[in-house]
């Protein structure tokens, strides 16, 4: 059984003064992977600029827009249709030999293979004082530990919008104990990496039908690498494993690598921007 999704992404930017030059790069196209089959993209902007399909530095699909005329208002609308296969998050055998999988984490080759997702970044730096806020128990499996971590993060932070922004780092989040999906995910990744588990930040869409937190914006969750199993998705904002409702766009070390919209805009004065995301599903046989 599969689901057919229709995702509508809208962004609107209004500027007080003329914008003479602008470049935008959208990282919003769902990834094609073994449970996401891509069906259709429709992208448009209100000023009639060409939309260039390209890739970013990590090879994920992007759309770049560079209007040739000056403007004060611009809006973008993207519609994606894709088929998502049913995902059973528990569809694997947790490693029988627990000790062996922890040993694997310490092998140099393993560390080299996952170097990018083991290192500390600007948004995944845990302050010295909270260094041991969550230590793994070596007598239970990595998967169980990660599930516990997922739960821990879910309980540790309170979901609250407009208290953090894209610049907020863990120093503040850990003290204030509140934030949005991005902050939950950063904390999850940081702790996992601290415990030598490769972890990556994932951005994407969440089907809201089930009343999950995701505030009709793009969503973020994490993927952790478990030896012999592979990458497993954890959604600490909702205390869930990533499933059929999670539609992945891109992954990276932290938010910086996945930011849905990057822009260089030459103008003066103030501006207002808004984004909305709508995810609709329809069951397929």
């Amino acid at each position: 059984m599969s689901l057919e999704y229709s995702i509508v992404y809208k962004a609107e930017n209004n500027y007080q003064n003329w914008v003479e030059q602008a470049h935008w790069q959208f990282l919003i196209i769902p990834e094609v992977n073994n449970n996401q089959e891509f069906v259709n993209i429709d992208f448009s902007n209100s000023v009639g600029a060409t939309n260039q399909f390209s890739i970013n530095g990590y090879g994920f699909k992007t759309i770049r827009v560079h209007p040739k005329q000056k403007f004060k208002n611009i809006s973008f609308e993207a519609t994606f249709r894709l088929i998502k296969k049913e995902v059973n998050p528990f569809d694997f055998n947790p490693s029988a030999d627990i000790e062996q999988s922890y040993q694997k984490l310490n092998e140099l080759n393993f560390k080299v293979d996952f170097e990018a997702f083991l290192k500390t970044t600007h948004f995944t730096r845990i302050p010295q004082a909270q260094k041991s806020m969550f230590d793994f128990e070596k007598d239970i499996s990595i998967f169980e530990n990660l599930q516990n971590l997922n739960h821990f993060v879910f309980n540790y932070l309170r979901f609250k919008t407009n208290v953090t922004d894209v610049k907020t780092t863990l120093d503040e989040i850990i003290v204030e104990r509140q934030g949005v999906c991005q902050d939950f995910t950063h904390l999850f990744c940081a702790v996992a990496r601290k415990n030598d588990i490769p972890a990556r930040y994932v951005s994407g869409y969440l089907h809201q039908g089930n009343g999950y937190f995701g505030d009709s914006q793009m969503h973020a969750w994490a993927e952790a690498y478990i030896p012999k199993i592979g990458w497993v998705g954890f959604d600490p904002t909702n205390n869930l494993l990533a499933n059929t409702n999670h539609i992945k766009v891109a992954h990276g070390k932290d938010y910086t690598d996945c930011s849905p919209l990057k822009g260089v805009v030459y103008t003066t004065g103030t501006n207002e921007t808004s984004h909305t995301v709508q995810v609709l599903s329809q069951q397929q046989q």
């Binding site: 470049h23 790069q25 390209s54 530095g57 770049r64 560079h66 822009g263 260089v264």
Partner: peptide, 20 residues
């Protein structure tokens, strides 16, 4: 600026993708 420092006006938007 679309790939690295976003406030840089010295570079060329999209250059890294062309390089890649």
């Amino acid at each position: 600026p679309l790939e690295f420092k976003p406030d840089s006006t010295l570079g060329v938007p999209g250059l890294f993708a062309a390089y890649k």
